[in-house]
Each structure stands twice: as C-alpha cells, then as structure tokens.
Design a protein around this nucleic acid. Structure first.
Lengths: 226, 226
DNA sequence: GCCCAGTTTCGCCGTTTGTCGGATTTGCTC
DNA sequence: GAGCAAATCCGACAAACGGCGAAACTGGGC
C-alpha cells in the first residue's frame, strides 16, 4: 500500500504539555502530516480502530491504566502492523532493548531534541529501526529472559488482554464480564496462556508476566513518589 | 537483660570479600565482639536458632534465594527482637525508609567508611535508629503503600513464609510439604493472609506483596544483568 | 473457493482454593 | 493458674480453576 501524501501519526501520552511538544516536533519534521493526540491506551486503540491503521504511533510507556511494557505489548498484539516509536523518560539501555524486543521500531528519550525526533521519525517511516546512539541491540541477553520474551510475544491480542487482567487479580468470571464473553472462553484463553508461558497456574503466569513485562509497579513507580 | 562483655554480631552477606571488610570494621569499632559470618538467609536463621539470639545482625538486602525486602521481612518475622542494620549498595532514600518501616534499626550504605560503620553500630546497640545523614524518616508516604506496609508487618512468621511461597507460585499442597505441615494448616494460613492483606485471592496477595515487598525481581535484578 | 488461526462456546471431570466451625497444643504474659 | 495469640489439625462445603474433546464462526491469505 503506497503512503498517501498525508502521513497519519498518533501521539499517545497522558501529559498534554508533552503531547504538544511532540506534535510541534512532528510537524516540523514532517510537513502536512495528519497528527492526532490521545491521552490513554483506550483512546489510542479506539483511534486506531475507527480511523484505520496509522502510519506511526508515538507511545509513552507510562500512561494511566498501564504500567511497564504492557501498553506496548497490548498495542503490538492489537495492531501488529502499526509502526511504534516508544517515547519514555527512562532511557536505560535495558529498557530500550526490551522495547525493541517487544516490537517497537524506535525509542526516543524524552530528553531528545527536535532534530533527533525528526531523525527517528523519518528513519522509522522508512522502515528502519532507530535508537539513541550508543545502544547495542545485540548485547547478550540472559537466556531465560529471552525465552520468556518470545513466549509473551507469541500471545494473541485477546490473550494479552486476559493476561493483563490476570495480573490485576481478577477472577475468570470478572474477566468474562469485562470482555463481554462467557467464562468458558476466558478459561480457554487462560489455558492457552498457561501453555504458551509454560507455567501451571494463573498465579505463576502473573509472576512470569511481572518479571518480564516489567510492571515498573512499585519499584520504580514508588521511588518516584517517595 | 544486661549485655555481656562479648557482644554477639552476625554478618549476613553473600559476598565473602565484603563480609571480611565488614568484620574488619566491626572489630575496629567494637573490641572483643563475637563476630560470625553467614552467606545465606538459611545460614543466618540457623545461626540465630542454634547460637541464641544475637545482639546485632548486619543484613545485606540481596542474598541468594532472597530478593527485595523479603529477607528483612522474613528475619523480622522470625526474630523480632534481634536488632538489624541493613547493609545495601542501593542507597535510595525510598529504600532506606522502607527498611526502617519494616523494622530495621539502621541502614548502612556500602559506600560508608569505617567511621560511619562504627557510629551506626554503636548507635543501634544503644537502642537508637541510625541512617545516613540527610534522610528524612518522616517524609510523607503515600497512604495506600503505608497501609500495605502495616498489613505486611502484621503477618506472623509462618504467614510470611507462606506468603513468600505463594509468591513463587506454589500450590497449597507443595507449601504444606515444604513446611512439613498439613494442607489444612496451609489453607488456614492463606486465609489469614488474605484477611490481613485485605484481598480475595492468592493471586491478589502475590500482586500486593510484589508491589510492596519490592521484589527487586526483574526490574532491578535484570537491569543489573542486562 | 479453501484453509488457517484466532475467537467463541459447550459439557464433563477432577483438582484446587477458600471458608466455616471446631479442636488441640505451645508458649507467653498477667 | 487464667488468659491469650500462634500454630497445628480436622471435616465438610461451595466456588473457582484447569484440562479435554468438540464444535462453530470469523477474517485474511493462497
């Protein structure tokens, strides 16, 4: 599919101010781009569902209702074909590598200047992967983590949703209600998840997901508030 | 109980080299002290069980088989009366405060010099609390976290053990075998834990424990290896 | 058109989980 | 000794969980 003159870009960040700054940078780098902004993951998926797939999504890792990599994971599962650049204040190499492992095509530190943003956006739109200089994407990864990342990536969109709800401690019945399906369906998904993650119980699945998908949770999240 | 001339001090750290350095500092600060070293939590509890309660334990937060604050929590649950100084390379204020909240009487950064170590040890032996300068122990803490910390602290020793095993994804039956008790007992403990933590299922208990007790788990543990 | 993967549903079955009430022992404190 | 909390155990029960086989529907790719 040939790209239309108006490239469609969606900015997903819960901070309106930073959304504005990003929009500014995008407009400068890409004249005539169709830029829209959303402040939550729900709004993002809705925008992608209704407006058709975008050419690029700029995704903040920490948004309301999403912690750690689960937002990226969720987006990747729901719209595998949409290119994603992760935008985050946390620019540790391990985080950047994890983002790329989970299918992001680029990583933009929030400290990046406009020139870098433009560079990253253009690179990703052209189909290549962009990360800040000095990041070795081929650094050795501990084997156990690598297999778990593969396992997580093999989950279908709905299974990712279910896993995220498992991680909130919901019962099958509650998940069924939330998703608007029967409990039998949820059980089927849970069984599939357990098989794919190679664990025996929902609790172990939650533990595994917490280990890998990050869940900045308390460890980093609390240290920010404390 | 009056303190005998020979003060009994146990150093718990998995790094032999640093154990030696600590022993050196302790000996300098406290002549004639009875200093013993252990390299794991099991060895520590065994030392405390057989040799009688020590006058002071210097505890490293990261030891084999223990992550995050669970080691401290476990020790506090098993030997509430033994004074503990946490020794850690991680000297973030939030970590230090959390240690004190969980009942440690002191916090010693691994970067501390011998003079500071002696100061800390003497202060704690005299019954006061010692932290590095510039740490405000009364800093406002987010309410939700505070209640969870209280809840966790209210667990009995055995309940802490059970909660730690829940966090490993073990079944009631497996926990029963590990602890050498019946499954009925484990169920009783689990029920008590659920009540105290104010949650409805074991999975939610694990999530709550992971949030609060730190579980350096992947977030810090992986970033160290990656 | 066919096929495939994902999603959805069902029923059956055994296991696990969690609650409730009651019970005993231990050890500590008053 | 009385009182108390912790830990241990029991039986019974309802709910939740998880596996198995089977079936149907969907959307996209060949």
């Amino acid at each position: 599919m040939k790209r239309q003159p108006s490239t469609r870009i969606v900015i997903a960040d819960d901070h309106p101010l930073f959304r504005g700054a990003l929009r500014q940078a995008v407009s400068t780098a890409l004249e005539g781009a169709d830029v829209s902004e959303v402040g939550s993951l729900e709004a993002l998926t809705e925008a992608l569902d209704t407006g058709g797939d975008a050419d690029l999504v700029l995704l903040d890792l920490t948004m309301p209702g999403v912690q750690g990599f689960s937002g990226l994971l969720f987006l990747r599962a729901d719209h595998p074909e949409v290119p994603v650049i992760v935008v985050s204040a946390n620019d540790e190499p391990s985080v950047i590598r994890r983002c790329i492992e989970f299918g992001a095509l680029g990583f933009l530190p929030k400290t990046a200047d406009v020139a870098q943003m433009g560079e990253a956006i253009r690179a990703v739109l052209e189909g290549s992967v962009w990360t800040p200089p000095g990041i070795d994407l081929n650094a050795p990864v501990d084997a156990e983590t690598a297999t778990m990342v593969r396992n997580l990536s093999s989950l279908t969109p709905q299974q990712v949703r279910v896993l995220m709800m498992l991680s909130e401690g919901l019962l099958n019945k509650q998940i069924a209600y939330e998703l608007g399906v029967s409990e039998a369906t949820v059980k089927a998904h849970v069984s599939a998840i357990l098989t794919k993650l190679d664990v025996d119980s929902r609790t172990q699945a939650v533990i595994a997901a917490a280990k890998i998908a990050g869940t900045a949770w308390a460890t980093t999240g609390a240290s920010a508030t404390l």
